[in-house]
């Protein structure tokens, strides 16, 4: 490749960025539009990844059946594939039932969605959902699972949307400790742990307390479970405490979520 051609490539690669820096608002619209186009591929990939994770979950089970397979290979093989399908269906049934129970617990409006993709940047913790504005998803809707809060809707396309998870470094949620009622801010840091920041040193917050949304901002309604305090340490400045919070939701196993328009806990 001659040197001139290289410069053409570099110049061409800078053009989109220069254009976007001039019109920053266009980025989410373009990305959501292209994600809508990618939706069939993402759905296919998601189904494949679902089977892939199930394979790992049942690896031990498969190993045991493999021994029996030596005696009756043909029969066990047939049963094994049937069992796999059955267990997947049962698991999905249980998950959806749990979601349905949760949905019926509050009177507000909500939309169930399936996770079909994940963000490409390693430190971003965002997921692509298979529902968009057509199905009633709106920006900033809280995203929950039966265990508790997982994030909120960041961008909405016509048939897909993108949610930012609590573990994303840009995520901030106002929260309070359930017993001591100490207020703080739940922030992500790109790993699976959450940080409970800016806690008053005199608030009497203890390890093991549950953490709930405080409802201070309009984004998240009050009282949604977030996690439990695992540890407490003093800030660098010594003025506040920072808690390490273990989320009640498992972010690496997100498959179906509920996007809620209004939340009224019982």
């Amino acid at each position: 490749m001659n040197i001139k051609r290289k410069y053409y490539f570099l110049a061409f690669s800078i053009l989109p960025l220069l254009f976007i820096l001039k019109n920053p608002g266009i980025t989410p619209h373009t990305q959501m539009m292209s994600q809508s186009l990618l939706r069939p591929f993402l759905s296919a990939g998601s189904s494949f990844s679902s089977s892939f994770t199930d394979f790992f979950n049942y690896f031990n089970l498969f190993w045991k059946t493999f021994e029996e397979q030596q005696q009756n290979r043909a029969r066990i093989s047939e049963l094994e594939s049937k069992l796999e399908l059955y267990q997947e269906a049962v698991q999905e049934n249980q998950r959806l039932k749990k979601m349905l129970d949760f949905k019926s617990q509050h009177r507000g409006k909500s939309v169930a969605a399936r996770v079909i993709g994940w963000d490409l940047t390693p430190w971003r913790k965002r997921v692509i959902l298979d529902k968009g504005s057509k199905q009633g998803i709106r920006k900033d809707m809280p995203v929950v699972v039966p265990e508790g809060l997982v994030g909120r809707i960041l961008d909405v396309g016509t048939s897909t949307s993108r949610a930012i998870l609590l573990t994303d470094p840009d995520s901030r949620v106002s929260a309070l400790a359930a017993d001591s009622r100490g207020n703080g801010l739940i922030a992500g840091n790109g790993s699976n742990a959450l940080e409970f920041r800016f806690l008053d040193t005199e608030a009497g917050i203890a390890v093991g307390e549950s953490v709930l949304t405080s409802g201070v901002t309009q984004l998240f309604p009050k009282g949604i479970r977030i996690g439990k305090i695992k540890g407490l340490s003093r800030d660098k400045d010594g003025l506040h405490l920072t808690g390490e919070v273990v989320s009640v939701a498992s972010f690496s196993k997100l498959e179906e979520v509920l996007c809620i328009a209004s939340y009224q806990p019982q």
Partner: peptide, 23 residues
């Protein structure tokens, strides 16, 4: 270009970063 269109970074950043590093 593909990653920019389906990621959440500022549009064009992946294209520039990848091309510059690849050169």
């Amino acid at each position: 270009l593909l990653r920019d269109l389906s990621g959440s970074e500022i549009l064009g950043s992946e294209t520039l970063a990848l091309t510059a590093s690849a050169i």
